[in-house]
Design a protein around this nucleic acid. Structure first.
Lengths: 253, 253
DNA sequence: TTAATATTGTTGTATATACAAATAGGGTAA
DNA sequence: TTACCCTATTTGTATATACAACAATATTAA
């Protein structure tokens, strides 16, 4: 009886056992991409459980990206997605701390400005609209690591808090000072050579390659509410991405 | 009636409306990290819906990382998660094609070699183990975009197929020629200046900043089975990442 | 033949119910 | 006071049911 796929007397939930069953089938290639799973009713009948429990298991498989469902058609094994890479980029502070260093962010400039033509275009606003302007340098043990420039519309006229100067999150800024709620963001990562000014702030020689990230924050109506530019020192920073089933094992490789 | 938070006559599912309601509350800081949501029964009574529907909404919030639940205690607003960024890096071919250009990969070198000390260390194998060695340049409309160097252990001694030279996927190579199955991968993205040789292959002047990606493929036992280095031209390539709920709207921004 | 219609099968949404399992608080006995 | 137990609260699991929405096929009508 204990060899059964679904054991109703197990400590483990039925939906979890069923999830594991299909996970094994898919990973072991008994079920291949494009193959249809049995219908929910069939699975329920096959294992003597209710359809809702089957749905719970399938919902977990969907979350894991292993299958997809089509209303009126069925449930199918998904193709493995090897094309997207997950990099951790933010939480600079935690990341620096994790390496045993002391993070610090220094405010170079913080002003309320009126948007010129260029900024107006970037933020999608009228020229002369009041905006917040920040320039921040983030250091680890005193050594500059990142240089950030941020703009957001200044609608609420709430004071700028000390804590905001510590938190380098652009979406936090937008939430606090624009009159809209951040909903989505777009980030573009490029490589660049440092200019004279950037090199001086980062403490490197001009022309040193750096990561350049442009970030745009949108509200519910897909209107731009904040814009930011971040430079990360290429000689001190790298992005790591892990993918697969035994990620914990390979992190120290 | 249409101002109500949950509209039973709406086309949108109730659980989705409820999900959106709490999402707004959390993003708008009316509900802050650590705050408890009303109990499932309270929410159900408040909106005149069933507890299972409330649970569906909460389950979506959990998936989105916005709340967490504790059995016997309640549901609480989560701290904003580390902002991980999803970049598309592979599927070079499709990406180039999408831009209306014609991709092509040219094989510069393909040899079976014996691992020297350095490669042995990289692949975690004995010196003199037989390995496959590839050098490929990927072009779009004839212009070089990426330069890749790949190594994998050559255990199966199966012939190298023409199709493999077209497919730049390191894990495909590893699957075909090593005697293990690729299970996980690690990718590290850095910036670099091109050397003389790299600059020549990529058709840029030496010192041009480029993306440098080191990729390692592991098998089930977390043993390294392939290693690759890719250079992407920084002046022609950038990584874009979208996050949020109205991603489709902002892609063209 | 072709187009419209009906039927059947499948997943999606929503409800009602029952009990299990973890948590927190209060009361009781030593 | 301290330890223990009991109870109420809250989320977790599982079932049964009903109908909606979509897809594909079969049937019918022109």
């Amino acid at each position: 009886m204990q060899g059964e796929i679904v054991d109703k007397n197990s400590i483990l939930p039925i939906y979890y056992q069923l999830f594991k069953h299909f996970e094994k089938q898919i990973r072991g290639k008994q079920l291949q991409p494009g193959d249809a799973l049995p219908t929910e009713m069939e699975i329920a009948a096959r294992f003597g459980i209710s359809r809702m429990t089957v749905r719970r298991a399938i919902s977990e498989l969907v979350s894991a990206g292993m299958v997809y469902t089509q209303k009126g058609k069925g449930t199918f094994v998904a193709s493995p997605r090897l094309d997207s890479v997950v990099f951790n980029l933010n939480n600079f502070y935690d990341e620096i701390r994790q390496k045993g260093m002391k993070p610090h962010s220094e405010l170079l400039e913080a002003r309320i400005i009126k948007a010129d033509e260029k900024l107006g275009r970037r933020l999608g606003i009228e020229v002369n609209t009041r905006c917040l302007y920040f320039r921040i340098v983030i250091t680890a043990d005193g050594e500059p690591l990142a240089y950030e420039t941020k703009y957001t519309v200044y609608a609420k006229r709430t004071p700028i808090l000390e804590s905001e100067l510590k938190d380098p999150s652009l979406s936090t800024l937008a939430a606090a000072h624009s009159d809209a709620t951040p909903s989505s963001s777009k980030k573009v990562l490029m490589v660049s050579k440092t200019t004279e000014e950037e090199a001086q702030v980062l403490g490197v020689s001009p022309g040193t390659p750096v990561f350049l990230m442009i970030q745009t924050i949108f509200d519910d109506d897909s209107k731009i509410i904040a814009w930011g530019k971040s430079l990360y020192r290429g000689d001190r920073y790298k992005l790591t991405s892990y993918e697969g089933w035994n990620v914990e094992d390979i992190k120290n490789s």
